[in-house]
Each structure stands twice: as C-alpha cells, then as structure tokens.
Computed example of a mutant assay.
Amino acid sequence: MGVLIHVFVGLHIIGIASLLGGFLTQMKAMSAGTARFNPAMLHGALTMLVTGAVLVGLNQADGNTVDHLKIGVKMALLVVILGLVYVKRDEEKAEKGPFALVGALTTANIFIAVLWT
C-alpha cells in the first residue's frame, strides 16, 4: 500500500507542477495583459483533484490519520482554482485579477500542504 500511496503522491506533484508551471509561463503575458488559462493549468488542477481524493482514500484505508480540516481547506481552494480555470479556459485573454488569484491560491495550496502539520 505504501508504494501505491507514493505513486499517487508523485502524480499529485506532477499535477501541481503542471498547474503552477502553466501559471508561471504566463507571468510575462499577464503583465502585458495577454495571459490566458492554458490546458496545462486545467489538466493540472484536475489531476490534483483526482489524485488528492485517491490519496485521502488510500491513507484512510491504510490506517493513517487524515486531517479532514486540512483536506477540506485544500479542496475548497482547488475547487475555486478549477472553477476559474474551467470557466475562463476558452477566453482569448484572462483578466489580471482572476489569473493572479489562481496563482496565489495555487501557491497557498502548496504552503498549506507543506506547513500545516
């Protein structure tokens, strides 16, 4: 079970790398007002959602303690991120506010994962 959990942690990290990488590659375009939500951001957010849910289930099945409040906060942030990226994905240009919010919430999600013990 431990190996399976580690595989899904790796997939979760790949998802967050895709989401954050998609955001970071658009930073220069954001300052110019031409940024857009790219498919990597959507797929990264979806990957994070699916692998995160699987990780919670696997950890509970393995008898590990799961902090439900932490998971709830992380999922709430991810739902907001996913909603913004999904709704705005076909627009030619993304407004600076929602685009910056996705980057800020993604960064907050990372720090919650690492610092909340």
Score class of each variant (00 low, 15 high):
H43T: 14
A104W: 06
L58R: 06
H68K: 12
L11S: 04
S18Y: 04
A76Q: 06
F8H: 07
V85C: 02
G97Y: 12
G83L: 09
V79N: 09
A113T: 07
L24I: 15
T106I: 05
V3M: 05
S18L: 06
A32M: 10
T47H: 14
K74H: 03
L49M: 13
K28M: 09
I110G: 15
E92D: 14
V3R: 02
Q26R: 01
V73G: 01
G2S: 10
G22E: 00
A76Y: 01
L115K: 08
T34V: 13
M48D: 07
A45C: 04
G10F: 06
T25E: 00
I5L: 03
H12Y: 04
L101Q: 11
T117L: 12
A45L: 02
A17T: 04
M27Q: 10
T51S: 05
V102M: 01
A40H: 09
I13D: 02
F37R: 02
T106V: 10
K96W: 05
A76H: 01
L82C: 10
G33Q: 10
L69F: 09
M1L: 13
V3S: 07
F99G: 04
H68M: 15
T65R: 03
A104M: 05
A35K: 01
V56N: 01
A32G: 15
Q26M: 07
T34C: 01
L101F: 01
I5K: 00
H43G: 15
L105A: 08
N59S: 11
M48W: 04
V79K: 04
T65M: 10
M1V: 11
P39K: 06
E92N: 11
V56S: 05
I110P: 12
L115C: 14
V102I: 09
M48T: 09
K93G: 14
F37I: 08
K70V: 10
A104L: 06
T25W: 00
H68V: 15
V50Y: 08
A40P: 01
M27T: 07
A17G: 13
N64S: 14
A17P: 02
M27C: 13
V3K: 03
I16C: 03
L4P: 11
F37G: 08
A40W: 05
V9T: 13
R89T: 08
M27G: 15
N64Y: 14
